[in-house]
C-alpha cells in the first residue's frame, strides 16, 4: 500500500523533510550525499565574483577562479576542495553571526569569493543539512540565485529560445489594486 505507507524515511520527504527533522531535533538521519561540483568563478570589474559555469563532477569539488588584475590581465587558478571548504565554512560562520554578504538583500552585483562559493556549493561542501537550511532562508536563496549565472548559460534550452531582449517585455500585478492576496492565512481574497 504505497500510497499509505511510504514515509518511512528521509527519502520520501526529500530535502525539506531533512530540514524539518533537523529543526525539530532528536531526529537523527543519515546525511544525503550531495553531488560534488566543478565551478568556474569569474571576477567582475567591481572586484566581486559570480559563478559562470557549474557542472556536477564524479571527483572532488574544485573551482577555476578567473580573476583580472589592475591591468586587465586575466589569470586562472584551480582551487581545491579543501580550499573551497575552508572558505565556505569561514563564510558560513560569518553568515551565522549575521556578518556575511549573504545576510543582506540587494547590494552590487556579485559577492566575495567565500560568499560566492557558499552560495552555490554549501550542500556539497558543508553537507546537505547545512545547504538546505541555508536555502530554506529566502534571503539567502535569492542572494545565492543572483550570484549564479550558470543555469542560464546551459546550451540545452529546449523550447524557450535564448533570446532575451528580442522584444519588449512587460510586468504585471503591479500597483496596489491588482494583487489579490490577503495577508493572513489562506487563499486569495481580493485586495
Amino acid at each position: 500500500m504505497k500510497h499509505i505507507n511510504s514515509l518511512a524515511g528521509s527519502i520520501a520527504l526529500g530535502s525539506a523533510g531533512i530540514v524539518l527533522m533537523n529543526v525539530l531535533g532528536g531526529c537523527s538521519q543519515e546525511e544525503k550525499k550531495e553531488q560534488n561540483k566543478f565551478l568556474v568563478i569569474e571576477q567582475l570589474t567591481n572586484g566581486k565574483y559570480v559563478v559562470v559555469e557549474e557542472m556536477p563532477t564524479e571527483g572532488p569539488s574544485r573551482a577555476i577562479i578567473r580573476s583580472k588584475d589592475a591591468n586587465g590581465t586575466v589569470t586562472e587558478r584551480i582551487m581545491s576542495q579543501d580550499e573551497m571548504k575552508n572558505l565556505a565554512s569561514q563564510e558560513y560562520n560569518k553568515y551565522q553571526n549575521g556578518g556575511s554578504e549573504l545576510n543582506h538583500e540587494g547590494g552590487s552585483e556579485g559577492m566575495g569569493l567565500g560568499g560566492t562559493i557558499l552560495a552555490v556549493a554549501a550542500g556539497s561542501l558543508l553537507g546537505h543539512m547545512v545547504g538546505n537550511a541555508l536555502m530554506n532562508n529566502s534571503n539567502f536563496a535569492n542572494k545565492a540565485n543572483s550570484v549564479n549565472r550558470s543555469a542560464y548559460s546551459r546550451s540545452a534550452m529546449g523550447g524557450a529560445a535564448n533570446s532575451s531582449g528580442s522584444s519588449a517585455k512587460k510586468s504585471f500585478f503591479g500597483g496596489s489594486g491588482s494583487g489579490s492576496s490577503k495577508t493572513s492565512s489562506g487563499g486569495f481574497f481580493g485586495g
Binding site: M157, G158, A160, N162, S163, K170, S171, F172
Partner: peptide
C-alpha cells in the same frame, strides 16, 4: 528559480525572471 509575481516579465514569446532569463 523563484521570482515574485510582480517581477516576472512577459511578452508573446517568453516568460522571464527579473533578469530577462526565459523559462520553459
Amino acid at each position: 528559480y523563484f521570482e515574485y509575481i510582480q517581477n516576472v516579465r512577459f511578452n508573446d514569446e517568453e516568460i522571464c525572471d527579473a533578469n530577462d532569463n526565459p523559462y520553459e
